[in-house]
Design a protein around this nucleic acid. Structure first.
Length: 605
RNA sequence: GGGGCUGUAGCUCAGCCGGAUAGAGCGACGGUUUCCUAAACCGUAGGUCGUGGGUUCGAGUCCCGCCAGCCCCGCCA
């Protein structure tokens, strides 16, 4: 109901201006125009919206706030366009103005959504206002596992949250570039290739000579040797130089390793239904020297202790001196800061030399906040972030186990993403089989597999998305798979209930003409349904998927109440058709919302 | 030492631009099924919003101090 909100805001503002012309003029002059402070009602009994703007005027006007509210209400009631929208306003408490929409207005909004595949959510304007880069792509940088390692629980949140944000932005009509900034370059490869040359040379020239699990073990050995053995360290560094210099043997080995990892990642992305374009660190390799050259030309580069640094403004270290961002190591090599700078520079650069992005979003853990703050600052000072564009770090907290510590397996290893997803599906299947036995239902294996897979993966995604991403998140299979509460199964069940009504003879396609409602449960459901557009706008603005989850949960609760207390199929016309229309709109809203979370729905479960 | 994040019911968490008596869910306790899937619904109990100040008509929310936990701080990403 964003359009209604917009209209009301205008009407309120006009009413305030008519009621208090002098205060309006004064406020204009001081640059802080009168604000009606229009917001959704904090409780259903207060109506649909509340305007709190009278309260702050009490002091400057020297009048009791309720009297001010009364004056505004008088002007409001004189406005015919307001009277068309709302019932008579009510002044409550210290001076709140409570607004309730006319029922016929709500019906009209419902009717409009029934015929709209976007359910009332507008697309961003195709033609821009001229400011910034309207219509330019939004880069969402997420997931980013490392080549030659398996995806583990540390990649879970970035992958799921990044995908959700990308889906929301795409739905709003932004062109989105989903970039997988995989770790496919750097010292780690020097180590691994050097080690493999000695212990498993076949892995370097034959595809799939060793499997990924072994590769991970080799990587671990290599890392251990690198930390302990200086000769190995030197050999590894040399290997990196060879690789970066394009040595054909090294390059071939590198390609084999990347291909193998890529296929492994793809099976995970496939299971989770996540689309990503791989563009690893190596992509920016040709631009690294130019980044350093540009920084030097801009006068930002300082060589300190042999390393190429940019000293950060407003960030000081232990000794009170500014903290450096190192962009070129003493040995001449580049590091991740250089790569990240090259990436920013490329993403904002106009096509065809770059992506021409209008906004770049990084979905990485909160521990990298200061790193990105530094990178963003340097990029800005170097002039690589154009006017009217924005760059955001979207941080998230750790995944913790029941003990409140970083999630680990019983033996203390990091949890492989593959195993985590398997376990979720297995547990969902066990739950389902138990339930089928209890209810004496019989279902085929295909059905059981489908439901278990959908429920298990949905549970993992939803549990992650439904908590505010900035805080650490306590992972618990038991909680996420619970059949009640704010969980994926609860939401999926609401959709299933509606599908059940359709199966039992509810014609969902019919009836959108003459809507008639009488029950409070119907009105509650309608009001909830009409919030969708505002919720999506909020998620797009704040990049907080948990706002969408809360909404879908509340919608499911309101629907379940309606379903429990108001008959649909057994109702007489016109209530029956009107209620069916609400069911259809609820199902469509839940499917759309869950779809934006990356969660598919079921007809039966 | 510097910086960041966090601290809300027994547990897991919401809390939007500062607004009415701080909300959910789980767990606990009590109820509901000739009826569209009870994976549901209804009800009860449960709070010094870490702490001390400040700002103001009004603070969980903004500012300052303090306490606790986690994370980052020179050539890993």
């Amino acid at each position: 109901m964003l359009s209604v909100l917009d209209a009301l805001n205008g009407q309120l503002q006009a009413a305030m201006e008519r009621a208090f012309p002098e205060a309006t003029a004064e406020a204009r002059q001081s640059g802080v125009p009168l604000d009606p402070q229009l917001a959704p009602a904090s409780k259903p009994e207060f109506g649909d919206f509340q305007a709190n703007g009278a309260l702050p005027l009490a002091k400057p006007l020297g009048q009791p706030p309720r009297q001010i509210a009364q004056a505004i209400v008088v002007q409001l009631k004189a406005d015919p366009s307001f009277a068309e929208l709302c019932l008579d306003p009510v002044i409550a408490g210290p001076g709140f103005i409570n607004l309730t929409l006319r029922p016929e207005r709500l019906c009209a909004e419902v009717a409009a959504r029934l015929g709209d595949p976007r359910l009332g959510v507008p697309r961003v304007a195709e033609a821009g206002t001229g400011a910034g880069r309207d219509g330019a792509p939004v880069v969402v940088d997420f997931s980013s596992p490392n080549i030659a390692k398996e995806m583990h629980v540390g990649h879970l949140r970035s992958t799921i949250i990044g995908d959700c944000l990308a889906r929301v932005l795409e739905f709003r009509g932004h062109p989105v570039l989903r970039l997988n900034h995989v770790g496919d370059w750097g010292t780690q490869f020097g180590m691994l290739i050097t080690h493999l040359k000695q212990v498993a040379p076949e892995a370097l020239d034959t595809a799939d000579a060793v499997d990924l699990g072994d590769l991970v073990a080799f990587y671990r050995q290599a890392k251990a040797r690198f930390d302990a053995d200086e000769a190995f360290q030197a050999a590894s560094r040399e290997e990196v130089v060879k690789l970066q210099g394009g040595d054909p043997v090294s390059l071939k080995a590198w390609r084999l390793l990347c291909d193998q990892s890529r296929r492994e990642f793809q099976t995970i992305y496939g299971r989770l239904d996540i689309a990503l374009s791989e563009r690893g660190e190596s992509f920016y390799n040709p631009h690294l020297q130019a980044v350093v050259n540009d920084l030097r030309a801009a006068g930002l580069l300082v060589v300190d202790d042999g390393a190429g640094c940019v000293f950060l403004e407003g960030v000081s270290g232990k000794d009170g001196k500014p903290l450096p961002l190192i962009v070129q190591k003493r040995d001449g090599g580049f590091n991740y800061a250089t790569t990240d700078l090259a990436a920013i520079r490329y993403r904002f650069a106009p096509a065809p030399e770059g992506d021409g992005a209008g906004r770049v979003i990084y979905v990485t853990d909160a521990g990298q906040a200061s790193h990105f703050a530094g990178v963003f600052q340097v990029a800005r000072r170097a002039g690589w972030i154009p006017e009217g564009t924005s760059v955001n770090h979207v941080p998230f907290g750790l995944v913790q186990g029941d003990d409140g510590k970083k999630l680990k397996t019983r033996s203390g290893d990091t949890v492989r993403l593959r195993d985590l997803l398997d376990e979720a599906v297995e547990r969902a299947e066990a739950d389902l089989r138990r339930r089928l036995a209890d209810e004496e239902r019989t279902e085929g294996d295909a059905f059981i597999q489908q439901v278990a897979t959908t429920v298990g993966l949905a549970a993992v995604k939803y549990a992650d998305l439904s908590t505010n991403r900035i805080t650490n998140y306590q992972f618990s299979f038991d909680r996420m798979l619970a059949l009640s509460g704010n969980t994926a199964p609860y939401l999926l069940y609401a959709v299933v209930r509606i599908a059940g009504i359709a199966r039992r003879g509810g014609d969902m396609a019919a009836a959108s003409g003459d809507l008639q409602f009488s029950e409070p449960q119907e009105w509650a459901l309608i009001r909830e349904l009409l919030k969708l557009d505002a919720v999506i706008a909020e998620v797009e603005e704040e990049l907080l998927p948990n706002r969408l989850c809360s909404y879908l949960f509340e919608l499911s609760q309101v629907f379940n109440r309606f379903y429990d207390q108001v008959p649909v199929l057994k109702a007489n016309e016109p209530a029956r058709s009107s209620r069916l229309a609400l069911c259809r709109l609820t199902a469509d809203t839940l499917k759309l919302g869950l779809g934006l979370l990356g969660i598919p729905t079921l007809e039966r479960m």
